[in-house]
């Protein structure tokens, strides 16, 4: 592999790692917040447990979408350059 080509590929791989790493930061904290509040809610009104669990999962799935964007971009960077 030539030097210039190698630098481009290497930058893409390093970028993939940083993309996934930083992209995982926000969703992790956010999903944890959702789950913590769901624990609180279930403790306060245990009769709505299944409703709260479902809402928690849907909310977490939506907050995770930015993490999935990062995953897609990281995979594109790894495999398409």
């Amino acid at each position: 592999m030539e030097l210039a080509q190698g630098i481009v590929k290497a930058a893409a791989l390093l970028g993939a790692g940083m993309c996934m790493g930083m992209g995982a930061l926000g969703p992790g904290v956010g999903e944890g917040f959702v789950a913590g509040k769901a624990c609180e809610g279930i403790a306060r009104s245990p009769e709505n447990a299944s409703l709260i669990t479902r809402t928690m999962l849907v909310g977490q799935a939506v907050s995770e979408s930015t993490g999935i964007y990062s995953l897609v971009i990281a995979l594109l960077l790894i495999f398409s350059t």
Partner: peptide
């Protein structure tokens, strides 16, 4: 690529660790 792997898992566990602790 190896340095990228370290950065990916290092930065990537930062958020989830805090969240699960919460």
């Amino acid at each position: 690529a190896l340095i990228g792997a370290g950065l990916a898992i290092g930065l990537g566990t930062l958020g989830p660790g805090t969240g699960v602790g919460y």
